[in-house]
């Protein structure tokens, strides 16, 4: 755990990522708020899934938490600083140093070999190339990609690409990794492998993980799930379950590993919840 010298300004946040009363309205004709009063606390090292139907505001929530968007009102505290009050350049730098990102496939740079894709964030942060390459190779090796360093994204399978993306997100030792539909383009088995690696490696690095997904099985890998609907958190979050943030799916409530049938059942479940 890193110390938090500026904790005076945000006494109760500590090393957590704490959002309070987030409201986000996109400018436009039909200015329906995408977020209307959201409170979220992401504790150090925990994994949180954010689920919700299309247009529910879950990606907006991720972007606001990650300092990509500034909220219309409300605050996002990270290590004692309010992201909502920081300038654009400062937030960009913070995303580079404190956060990691995994998107759907296709967002690695196609011209760069895997190793350089992973080393790039370090080089952007001013780490000399040789050191950056060494650290990138080490992270790739921990993800089972040793020997594929010279391959370019086009020469990797979907699952391998996503593991490179995970390596890129983790190489800077971030405090939080944000993942937006990280398995959206993968088949179910590969998706489970990638989620397993993502949660396992984040836990090992002590990084918190926030995953936006509409796949109940993906959410099952996280310690808890937030359901977003119409810009609000749908129901109180289940208690933190740090024991589940170590690379095992959150299946204890059903006693069996997630299967398509379970996923379908759960999504029916959610629909009934949302219908209320």
């Amino acid at each position: 755990m890193r110390p938090h010298p500026t904790a005076v300004t945000a006494p109760d946040t500590g090393d957590a990522l704490v959002a309070r009363d987030l409201v986000k309205t996109y400018p436009g004709v039909d200015a329906v708020p995408a977020l209307r009063g959201v409170d979220v606390t992401v504790s150090p090292g925990e994994s949180v899934a954010v689920m919700g139907p299309s247009g529910s505001g879950k990606t907006t929530l991720l972007h606001v938490l990650a300092g990509i968007l500034t909220p219309t009102s409300g605050s996002v505290h990270w290590r004692g600083r309010d992201l909502a009050r920081m300038g654009d350049a400062a937030r960009t730098a913070l995303r580079r140093t404190d956060f990691g990102f995994v998107f759907q496939t296709g967002h690695l740079l196609g011209e760069l070999p895997a190793l350089e894709n992973v080393a790039l964030p370090l080089m952007l942060a001013g780490v000399p190339r040789r050191e950056a390459a060494g650290r990138a190779a080490a992270v790739l090796a921990t993800l089972g990609l040793g020997g594929l360093e010279r391959r370019r994204p086009g020469e990797l399978s979907g699952g391998q690409s996503q593991r490179v993306a995970i390596a890129r997100a983790l190489v800077g030792r971030p405090g939080v990794v944000f993942a937006d539909e990280p398995t959206g383009a993968l088949d179910q088995q590969t998706s489970a492998e990638v989620m397993g690696e993502l949660t396992r490696r984040c836990a090992q690095e002590g990084a918190a993980l926030v995953v936006v997904t509409h796949d109940a099985q993906v959410a099952g890998w996280c310690g808890r799930t937030l359901r977003v609907r119409d810009g609000r958190i749908e129901r109180p979050a289940t208690p933190d379950r740090p024991d589940l943030a170590t690379g095992t799916p959150n299946t204890s409530d059903r006693g069996t590993p997630p299967t398509p049938r379970d996923a379908a059942a759960r999504s029916r479940d959610e629909q009934t919840v949302w219908a209320r």
């Binding site: 960009t92 730098a93 995303r95 990691g100 990102f101 998107f103």
Partner: peptide, 8 residues
Amino acid sequence: ALALAGAP
């Protein structure tokens, strides 16, 4: 994606 990940 680069910009989101903090590339200026």
